[in-house]
Structure formats: C-alpha cells, structure tokens
C-alpha cells in the first residue's frame, strides 16, 4: 500500500493544466500537494456522487483534462456510473481510485469484500479505454506520465494506506478548505465561464 500523500506528490508534476477533483478521506490530502488550486474543484455533497459530477464536467468541458481521485467506498455506492462513463467514452477523463479498503471516516470498518475487489478489472470489463492498477509507488511513478497522455476514459486503481478517523465528528481537527461554491466560482473564472 502507498500513502495517498505520496500518490499526490508523484502525480502533481504530471498534472499539467488538468482540472482535479477528489472524494473520500484520502482525497483530503490533495490540497497540500496541489500547485494550481484555481483548477481544483470540490464537487461532492451526496453519497457516491462526486464521480457522476466529474463525469458531467468531463462531458461539458471536452477540451479540458478532468482528473478525479475517487475512493472505493464512494464508488461502491454508485457503481453503475462506470457503465455510464464507459458508454460516453470521455477522452479527457482520468479516473483514479484510491482504494484503502475501509470506510476511514467512520472508524475504519471494511467495505464489503474489501480486499478482494479488482476495480481496474471491473473498469476494463465495463469498457474503459485503458486501465491500470498499482500497489507500489515506484511503479506508479514510472508510469504516471504515460497514463496522463493516454486517451480516456482511463481508470487507475491504487492501494493506499487508510487514514482512519475515530474521534467524534465534533472533536476532529477541522481543515481550512474552500467551500464548493468557492471552488466552482474560481474554476469558472479561470475558464471564463459565465452565467
């Protein structure tokens, strides 16, 4: 397993001008690595639906590369979206899955069949143009540049270390993050989208 912070550190130099969105506990580490926050966007606010929102964004912005760092708990709540994505074949969509095998934010309970699901195999079978799986950081570092140059939809599953949170919600350290409307407004300004 790889630390999500290391995934992001390795990925960031290959990001280019891609628009990046995240879901899940691991995704919370992305803002610490990002060097282009104007192109980071928060899309989540419903269980498992960040994937669909990123898919819609990819369809609406075909000339921009859209990168999603998804989580396996979220994806399992909305698994049919893989077929929806494969059906439209957005060439500009790179779908990373950070698989920590647990619901980290609720105390680390395992997701169903947690250690035995081949998400990349699932994405390949359902029709993604390209799929990859990593559980070694060096392998990922070697291939990430090529992955970012591939025609999508691309799916990349990565086994990551869970960052389990057990404290009651009210006692957890609060990260200072931009709100969803703030990130959307900043991205729209960056892209010149009005209305």
């Amino acid at each position: 397993m790889i630390k999500s912070q290391d995934v992001f550190r390795v990925f960031e130099p290959h990001r280019g001008k891609a628009i990046v969105t995240t879901s899940g506990t691991s995704g919370r580490n992305w803002p610490d690595a990002s060097k282009n926050p104007e192109r980071d966007i928060s899309m989540g606010s419903a269980m498992g639906q960040t994937t669909s929102a990123a898919f819609g964004l990819a369809l609406g912005l075909p000339d921009e590369k859209i990168v999603l760092f998804d989580s396996e708990g979220a994806l399992l709540m909305n698994l049919g979206v893989l077929a929806s994505i494969a059906g439209k074949q957005p060439k500009n969509f790179v779908h990373f899955l950070l698989d920590n095998e647990v619901y980290a934010t609720t105390g680390g309970q395992p997701v169903p069949n947690n250690a035995n699901i081949d998400y990349a195999g699932m994405a390949k079978a359902i029709g993604y143009a390209s799929t990859h799986h990593f559980d070694d950081l060096e392998d990922f570092a070697t291939q990430v540049e090529g992955i970012m140059a591939e025609e999508g939809p691309v799916f990349v599953s990565i086994k990551v270390v869970p960052e389990v949170e057990n404290m009651p919600m009210g006692l957890r350290a609060q990260r200072k993050t931009r709100t969803r409307p703030e990130t959307i407004a900043a991205l729209q300004e960056e892209l010149g989208i009005t209305g």
Partner: peptide
C-alpha cells in the same frame, strides 16, 4: 445507469456552462 447519478451529472454540466 441509476437516477441518483442524474443530479450530479447535471451539476458537472452546469459548472461547465
């Protein structure tokens, strides 16, 4: 594939203008 995807997909499109 399921109606729950609809609002989110539409939101992504709205953000894209």
């Amino acid at each position: 594939s399921r109606e729950g995807e609809a609002s989110a997909t539409a939101l992504g499109l709205c953000v894209a203008g």
